[in-house]
């Protein structure tokens, strides 16, 4: 697979990224990465009793970063934010057919999710 040859799932999520945008009001947010280094990921989660009711993401990054953040935002729904073990970068890489040299991008996505989880841990809503 060359650098611009993406899997169908990456193409679909790049073209129609589910949950892209920003949530306002009382939300838990998490971010990781830097635009200057090529990838920046931000998540917003609206919770009810610690469970994700609504989610949104923003990404500056390659198509793999966009697809991965979209997948995480979508799959976080109805899960507790204090458990992020379901987000396994290697399994997600296999699912999206992300090449090995791009695994770092998925780690940034994971870091953004865990940053939100850490904020939740410290919040009064817990």
């Amino acid at each position: 697979m060359d650098s611009l040859d993406y899997s169908q799932q990456v193409r679909d999520r790049f073209e129609r990224p589910a949950n892209a945008g920003r949530l306002l009001g009382p939300v838990i947010s998490g971010a990781a990465g830097e635009e200057g280094l090529g990838t920046r990921v931000e998540f917003d989660f609206r919770l009810r009793s610690g469970t994700v009711e609504e989610s949104a993401f923003r990404v500056y990054g390659c198509p793999h970063a966009i697809a991965a953040a979209s997948w995480v935002a979508e799959n976080a729904r109805d899960r507790r934010l204090d458990d992020t073990s379901w987000m396994d970068p290697l399994r997600l890489a296999a699912l999206l057919e992300v090449p090995e040299h791009k695994l770092g991008v998925l780690l940034v996505v994971q870091d953004a999710l865990e940053a939100a989880a850490a904020k939740f841990d410290q919040s009064e809503d817990r």
Partner: peptide, 16 residues
């Protein structure tokens, strides 16, 4: 640009 973090907030949910 609409997907990127620096997008200014203009509504409750920005379209991606």
């Amino acid at each position: 640009r609409g997907l990127a973090p620096k997008t200014p907030v203009t509504s409750d949910r920005e379209a991606g």
